[in-house]
Simulated scan of single mutants.
Amino acid sequence: MDAVLVLNADLGPLHRVPIKHAIRMLLRQVAEIHEAEPDRLIGVFPMPKVLRLVRYVVTRWRYTNGPAWSKSGVLRRDDRRCGYCLGVATTVDHIVPRARGGRNTWQNTISACYSCNQRKADLTLAEAGMQLLLQPSVPTWLGTMQR
């Protein structure tokens, strides 16, 4: 187990934290165990799977915008599959090339394998004779909690 889900006091998902951070939250008494693995202990605490905060944290900002764009976020969104050939993706490609005004946005980037990224280069999809097999989407905070 590499991360523990943290729930708000109203049981809404907030984020995931490493196990060390989860134990610190328990020691500071800002959270309590909501769900734990049976028969596994860390000191006096059962191994937590889910923590619930003791007090409600206002998260209005979380619902106004999705997660910020990042290369690792694009790869995670596309499950590391190439948007052109469905192979293993290691890079991120701009659908509208940056040289032609394309920007780093969720809608303009797709995961790509090295060979597809090189083949497309600074061309549009039509110029390169390629088509998208995956459609780019803007992830939501709820989608990031489910991973």
Rank of each mutant, 00 (worst) to 15 (best):
L11E: 14
K120C: 09
N108R: 02
E35W: 00
K49P: 01
A68D: 14
Y56A: 02
D122G: 03
A126Y: 05
S72G: 04
A126I: 12
E37N: 03
I23S: 06
R62P: 01
L51A: 02
D39L: 10
P97T: 10
Q29D: 13
V58K: 15
D122M: 02
G83D: 08
T109L: 12
R100I: 11
L123Q: 15
W141R: 05
T109N: 04
L125T: 03
I23L: 15
A89H: 03
L5V: 09
L123G: 02
T144G: 01
M25Y: 12
R80W: 10
R60G: 14
G143W: 02
Q107C: 02
C116Y: 02
E35L: 14
T105Y: 04
L86F: 11
A68V: 14
L53H: 02
P139W: 05
Y84A: 02
Q118Y: 07
G73L: 11
N8E: 01
A128Y: 02
G102C: 12
Y114A: 08
G12Q: 14
A9S: 11
W106L: 01
I33V: 15
G12I: 08
Q131W: 00
P46Q: 15
V88W: 00
A121Y: 13
R98S: 14
P97I: 04
L51S: 04
L123S: 13
P139F: 09
R80G: 01
I23A: 06
G73D: 10
L123F: 14
M130F: 01
P13S: 09
T105L: 12
K20H: 10
V58D: 15
D79E: 09
L132S: 07
I23R: 10
L134M: 07
M1S: 15
P46R: 15
R80Y: 15
M1T: 04
V74A: 10
P18T: 14
A22R: 05
L86Q: 07
N117T: 03
T140H: 02
E32A: 11
V54W: 00
N117H: 08
K49G: 05
S115P: 09
I23T: 06
T91R: 01
V138H: 08
G83F: 07
Y63P: 00
R62I: 09
G102D: 09
V54F: 00
E32R: 12
T64A: 14
L7A: 13
L142F: 04
A9R: 13
Y84G: 00
I110F: 04
M47T: 10
I19T: 13
N65M: 05
R81A: 10
R147A: 12
P18I: 08
V96D: 03
T90I: 10
T59P: 00
C82A: 11
K20W: 03
L86C: 08
W69M: 11
T124I: 05
A128K: 03
R16T: 15
R40K: 11
E127T: 01
I110Q: 01
H15D: 11
D10F: 01
R28K: 15
S70R: 06
P38S: 12
K49N: 12
C85P: 07
T105M: 09
Q118I: 13
Q135T: 15
N65Q: 09
T59D: 13
K120E: 11
Q146P: 01
G73Y: 05
R40D: 04
F45R: 05
D10S: 06
P38F: 00
C82Q: 03
A121T: 07
E127F: 05
E127A: 11
I95W: 03
Q146M: 12
Q118A: 06
P38V: 05
R40T: 06
G102F: 07
R55N: 14
V54T: 15
T144H: 13
